[in-house]
């Protein structure tokens, strides 16, 4: 049975990869199959892993009558199918938007804003890095000493680039240009990591084809 499913997976992989040559019916079949299966799977798992254990079962067993509130809010969402009554679905939507907006503000403030600002308040040169260089002089430990200055200088330059009340000329212009350069380095690193991810996906599929399917390795 395993061999059968390996063949199915291999053929579907080849059907998807065939798009690299050009769009074709095999690709379309695999694509539609994937969309249908994914939608069905998500629906089933939401029903059996979320709806029943967290809402329906405790409600029917009379363990928590307050669950009737999310149940009714959930039912109200279905009024979106009716042009006349779709306004009712705005209530549960408003509830969800309110909850998630509140969570987002707290999460961002606590996790990102405060902690990242805190992490940026550092000495221009780390004493630990200097000690590390003194103990083991080398290229890596020397670069380690540059870590804090690069963070502090880079942060100032990039913030200056986004400071639009000041014309980017003269000294401010110089720092803003350095900030732009540093942003480009960041985008380059982001692109490099994206290539790494995409390459890994390709390798994984090829490895599946040559090991599990063709048994070449």
């Amino acid at each position: 049975m395993d061999t059968f499913w390996t063949w199915i997976a291999a053929l579907l992989t080849l059907m998807i990869l065939s798009f690299l040559y050009k769009d074709n019916p095999f690709f379309k079949v695999a694509e539609h199959l994937f969309v249908g299966l994914a939608a069905g799977y998500v629906l089933a798992i939401q029903f059996f892993n979320v709806f029943r254990p967290n809402l329906w079962d405790p409600l029917v067993a009379g363990e928590n009558f307050l669950l009737i509130i999310p149940f009714i809010l959930g039912l109200m969402m279905f009024t979106r199918f009716s042009d006349k009554h779709s306004w009712i679905s705005r209530w549960p939507l408003a509830y969800m938007i309110g909850i998630y907006s509140g969570l987002a503000v707290i999460g961002f403030t606590e996790g990102d804003l405060m902690r990242q600002v805190q992490a940026s308040i550092i000495p221009p040169v780390s004493t630990e890095a200097v000690k590390g260089f003194a103990a083991d002089p080398g290229v890596l430990t020397a670069l380690g000493m540059l870590s804090n200055p690069v963070i502090v200088f880079g942060l100032i330059c990039i913030l200056l680039y986004f400071f639009f009340s000041l014309e980017h000329k003269g000294t401010a212009g110089f720092f803003a240009k350095v900030g732009t350069g540093l942003l480009m380095v960041g985008f380059g690193a982001g692109y490099g990591y994206t290539v790494m991810t995409r390459m890994a996906l390709l390798i994984d599929r090829f490895y599946f084809l040559i090991s599990d399917w063709l048994k070449l390795v």
Partner: peptide, 25 residues
């Protein structure tokens, strides 16, 4: 996943993450 590493690296530098595996490497 490597594609998320640039975004998460800030958390490593701030100490919010105590270690990280960066992609397949």
């Amino acid at each position: 996943g490597a594609v998320s590493v640039p975004e998460y690296s800030a958390y490593l530098q701030s100490g919010q993450l105590s270690g990280m595996l960066m992609g397949i490497a």
